[in-house]
Nucleic acid binder design. Structure first.
Length: 812
DNA sequence: AGCACGCCGACT
DNA sequence: GTCGGCGTGCTC
């Protein structure tokens, strides 16, 4: 038997199957989708079995046998293997990169080199300084790691010893998919036997008697108790337990436990809510698609607070009743406790949550529950789209317009496309939900490619919040130079008086604190990147967000020696300070990367706010979504247009989506909500349409602009990034690529470039790009592959880097 | 990617 | 005469 294997060597030349002989002992066990260890050239690597058959085009006599099977059970299903082929073609990634990204991080191979003494008796052949590392059978577990922290002399000696054959290097392939283990204690004796044993103990053995008594009173024979728990409950020490183990009365053992990240938390069981007419009308077509086992993509556009989640829940419930499984994708930042609680509350322990805040091990455990069929709902961020279900009944993508569904590293897949592929395979519906659908999706729904479902009303006929625009130019003219308009200040005061809550939203994107000289206009910039340095208050430094360069804050301008050098821009910390200056008695809960870094702090802050322990919730992106507190009646947006002018054709769309999203936080229940949007461009359509809650109007205007500019959804995009330390090479390579594309692609396709990227230099590397806009281009993949092939040698030898992004989201 | 093979310069 | 530089090519 022959196995077709994709090896874990991510380069162009090895991006194809390699044939291996399957040793007779593995023939019955081997299944496509399993990981295997194979020798590949002179080394050992991991690989994935794509298929097994009896055929090979290679010289049979030269085939190597595969070394070992890693899995008892294939982590990837046949369907996921097929899917991986489509993704690698679509995104021009290496097959191995796609396969690896389908698995939880804990299962991805780690390669290390172990350094050990050839034989123990030659220890004294080593230089004296190195002997400490190898005496008493010691070894260096991770040679690459060791080299990073060792001094040069030791390193040199060590390498010489390897060369002289005193030390040997053993390559290891490993993973860390270990399940959590805990020590448990149990007894094989009956309680009578324990009581008898207790009497034979001396009078001084008080603790031992106590321990035995605890066992005979509380635990049945063979019943296991975790060691930590036992110590706590019986009130004895480890030594006492150890003593009893020695005497053969108790037995200690290691046991694998299921790590449940939500252990110990109870979720109140929720029942399906009665749907409003509009909701029912949206749900019905989904249910019939489920009933008829027909693939269909639905675009559910429902205004904020229209009850989309309830529709998801009921659709899933229906799928589960048919014995099928469900995947729910939620944007990373909105994987809030509130969302998890709703799913856990309805489906209880049938839900696995793949949360970015979980540890590698916890994620692996959740993944395993899916693979082993212990759960039938997976809720998670982007990568949860690869949940290894085998009888998928429905896929839901909440906040479908979110850009985080596009992976920005290789493989650059979009979860929406992957979801539809899986839906087609399983003949099941895919639901894309959003209050502000992406232009791509809504255009498809209009064309009838997706089935459009609309909900214009909020649940219980709650009114949409009143949105007012505050013209900050006007404020400036009236002498208000602060970041708060008078209107916003009095509204905050008003809520404080009424004991209602306020959400203040600061959009940090394209808006950071930088340092500038007021006399000569000097701006502190990174010496390695073409970008200004950001002021970090916590350690009083200037940092580059792209390369991590840190420097101290100059007290005088390095250019003109003036001392009027100062900070510009606004951060959440600054806003908090300013608020407290104006309203010293107001309680502000600030949520940003700094205050939510610690695990669980996100949740904690929201809980505090929910309990009314704060008057104002101040934050960035992360507060825009999903929060639902009845007492929020005011939402203030400090700088609505801060990202409107980013060099990205989606900036208007993002502005509209984000503002609509934050506005939706206000007045979701009995109390009506008010939204104040501060802006310097109040007549921009993306801001005006937020005021009138008019998605369709925004859609039409934006579509027009996309049509004129030749952007999606009218055209498809591909961006080719080229970077290198030498500017002339970047330019010439990009030029050649552009020319090549012009010669090989159809005449209707537009090719732009070479142009410098929006940030022309990062980490001392120059960056150029070339953009392709096309409608139909059957030769695209082939042509792009040709480009990669042409430069693969140069990329391997030198620092030249070329990356291709099909359907890019990051234009920078 | 790694690693071996292989063909030209400065050294015991 | 040999050690070692890194260009080239292969890995079932």
């Amino acid at each position: 038997m022959i196995a077709k294997v994709i090896v874990d060597v991510a380069v162009n030349q090895t991006d194809r199957v390699f044939d291996y002989l399957v040793p007779a002992e593995f023939e019955d066990a081997i299944v496509p989708g399993m990981r295997v260890n194979v020798s590949f050239g002179p080394r050992k690597v991991q690989g994935f079995v794509l298929a097994t058959d009896d055929h090979t085009d290679y010289d049979r006599g030269k085939l190597k046998p595969l070394a070992e099977l890693i899995d008892l059970y294939p982590p990837l299903t046949e369907e996921l293997l097929e899917l991986s082929k489509w993704i690698k073609d679509d995104t021009l990634s290496f097959h191995i990169s796609v396969l690896k990204s389908m698995l939880p991080a804990a299962m991805r191979a780690k390669y290390q080199k172990k350094l050990s003494l050839k034989s123990p008796e030659i220890l004294n052949e080593l230089p004296l300084s190195l002997q400490q590392f190898f005496k008493d059978d010691k070894e260096i577990e991770n040679w690459d790691e060791w080299r990073k922290q060792a001094n040069d002399e030791d390193k040199k000696q060590m390498m010489k010893a390897v060369k002289d054959g005193v030390l040997s290097v053993t390559p290891l392939v490993m993973t860390n998919e270990t399940k959590k283990k805990q020590m448990v204690v149990f007894t094989e004796k009956t309680s009578q036997e324990l009581a008898q044993a207790s009497e034979t103990l001396t009078a001084r053995a008080e603790k031992q008697k106590k321990l035995l008594a605890y066992f005979s009173e509380n635990l049945a024979t063979h019943e296991k108790i975790p060691l930590v728990q036992l110590l706590d409950r019986a009130g004895v020490s480890r030594q006492t337990v150890q003593e009893m183990v020695k005497k053969g009365l108790l037995i200690k053992a290691e046991q694998v436990v299921d790590r449940d990240p939500y252990e110990g938390r109870t979720f109140e069981q929720s029942q399906p809510l009665t749907l409003m007419d509009e909701q029912q009308q949206a749900l019905d077509p989904i249910l019939s698609s489920l009933l008829e086992e027909r693939h269909e993509t639905f675009l559910l556009r429902g205004v904020t607070g229209s009850g989309k989640t309830e529709i998801y829940l009921q659709a899933i419930d229906y799928a589960l009743k048919k014995g099928k499984e469900a995947i729910v994708l939620v944007p990373e930042i909105s994987l809030t406790p509130q969302m998890v609680t709703r799913f856990k509350g309805r489906f209880g322990s049938r839900v696995a949550v793949l949360h970015s805040a979980l540890s590698k091990g916890e994620k692996y455990d959740e993944w395993l529950k899916i693979r082993e069929g212990k759960v039938d709902v997976a809720v998670g961020a982007r990568s949860a789209i690869f949940a290894p279900f085998e009888n998928l009944g429905i896929v839901i993508i909440d906040e479908e317009h979110e850009t985080s569904y596009k992976q920005e590293e290789v493989p650059r897949y979009h979860a929406r496309q992957v979801a539809i592929k899986r839906g087609q395979f399983y003949n099941c519906p895919v639901i894309l939900g959003s209050a502000t659908p992406s232009l791509e999706s809504y255009a498809r729904a209009q064309k009838g490619v997706y089935h459009l479902l609309t909900m214009e009303k909020r649940v219980n006929d709650v009114q949409m919040p009143q949105v007012s625009l505050v013209d900050m130019r006007e404020e400036l003219r009236n002498g208000n130079r602060s970041m708060f308009s008078n209107q916003l200040l009095s509204a905050i005061q008003d809520r404080k008086d009424k004991q209602e809550q306020t959400v203040l939203f600061l959009n940090r994107r394209g808006y950071s604190t930088f340092i500038m000289c007021r006399d000569c206009g000097y701006v502190a910039e990174c010496p390695h990147c073409d970008i200004s340095l950001t002021y970090h208050r916590s350690n009083q430094s200037l940092q580059c967000h792209y390369c991590g360069h840190i420097e101290t804050i100059p007290s005088i301008c390095p250019e003109c020696s003036s001392d009027s050098i100062r900070f510009f821009g606004t951060g959440t910390q600054k806003v908090e300070e300013e608020i407290l200056k104006i309203f010293p008695e107001i309680r502000v809960i600030r949520m940003d990367v700094d205050t939510t870094r610690r695990k669980g702090s996100h949740e904690k802050l929201l809980q505090q706010f929910g309990e009314g322990k704060g008057d104002i919730l101040l934050g960035t992106q992360m507060i825009a979504k999903g929060l639902d507190f009845p007492n929020i009646t005011l939402v203030g947006v400090l700088a609505a247009d801060s990202m409107l002018h980013l060099p990205d054709f989606r900036s208007s769309e993002r502005t509209f989506q984000l503002l609509t999203q934050v506005s939706g936080r206000a007045g979701r229940h009995e109390k009506t909500g008010e939204v104040l949007v501060q802006t310097y461009t109040p007549d921009h359509y993306s801001i005006m349409d937020v005021k009138s809650h008019d998605y369709l109007s925004f859609f039409d205007k934006e579509m027009n602009i996309r049509k004129q500019g030749g952007y999606p959804p009218y055209y498809f995009l591909v961006i080719i990034h080229v970077s290198d330390e030498q500017l002339d090479r970047v330019v010439s390579v990009t030029e050649k690529i552009t020319g090549f594309l012009k010669n090989h692609l159809s005449t209707e396709t537009m090719i732009y470039g070479p142009v410098a990227s929006a940030i022309p230099r990062i980490k001392d590397r120059y960056r150029y790009q070339c953009m392709i806009k096309y409608k139909v281009e059957p030769k695209l993949t082939e042509t792009l592959q040709e480009v990669i092939k042409t430069y693969q040698g140069e990329m391997a030898r030198t620092g030249l880097a070329i990356t291709i992004d099909t359907n890019p989201y990051m234009m920078l």
